[in-house]
Amino acid sequence: MQANVVTPDGSVFDGHVEMVSVKTQDGELGIMANHLPLVTPLAIGAVRIKKDSKVQLIAVSGGFMEVRPDEVNILAESAELPSDIDIARARAAKERAERRLEEAKRDNIDFKRAELALKRAINRIEVSGTKQ
């Protein structure tokens, strides 16, 4: 089946694949050819694309997935291949978010925003293949 991962900045992945696995807001979901049509919101997580018996990861920060019997389209807010992830920047973002979360406990700042920033940073670090 055909799989496409697109962001507002352009295409991140486009090709024929065996399977696509994503983290939706309701849990994990695996898609293979001839799947029933579906549209679902995505959570922050790694998209796993199985192609030629190898798995490729893409860090995604939310969006939607549209499934057709012969095609999967992922419309992501942001998406990065492991080779495109700036690990130093991701670690700095993780540290900032952790500090904000700690401050939120004391100062009641925007806890949800800091929590989402932390999830995005951890996802990028995990997809990059480096240790936290």
Rank of each mutant, 00 (worst) to 15 (best):
I44K: 10
G129I: 05
L57M: 02
V39G: 12
R89Y: 02
S11L: 04
M65K: 07
M1S: 12
A117E: 09
A90N: 07
I44G: 10
T24E: 13
A88H: 14
Q56I: 03
G62N: 14
A92S: 07
E66K: 04
E71P: 00
Q56H: 12
G10M: 08
I44Q: 02
A3R: 03
K50C: 03
A46E: 09
T7E: 02
G27F: 00
R99A: 01
A43G: 12
K112V: 08
I87Q: 15
V22C: 06
E98T: 09
G62C: 05
K105N: 00
L29D: 10
E115K: 11
E102S: 13
A114C: 06
H35A: 13
D70S: 14
N34V: 09
E103G: 00
A46H: 04
A43T: 08
P8K: 10
H16P: 04
I58C: 06
P8D: 01
E28D: 15
V5N: 03
A33R: 13
G45Q: 07
E80I: 01
R68D: 12
L118F: 14
N4M: 14
S78G: 04
I87L: 11
A43P: 05
L75A: 12
L29P: 12
S61T: 10
V22R: 02
E115R: 09
I122A: 12
V72R: 06
F13Y: 15
K119A: 14
H16C: 08
R113H: 02
G45P: 07
A92I: 03
R113G: 00
L101D: 05
L101T: 11
E77P: 06
V20Y: 01
R113P: 00
E126P: 01
D26Y: 09
I87A: 14
V6W: 01
L81M: 06
P82T: 09
I87V: 15
T130H: 10
P82A: 12
I58W: 08
A76C: 09
K119R: 15
K119H: 11
D70E: 10
V5T: 11
D52A: 12
I44N: 06
M65Y: 13
V12L: 02
S61P: 01
A88I: 10
N108M: 03
L75M: 13
R113V: 01
E77G: 07
I87E: 15
D86Q: 13
L118A: 08
H35G: 14
L29R: 14
V17R: 05
P69G: 13
K50H: 11
V67D: 08
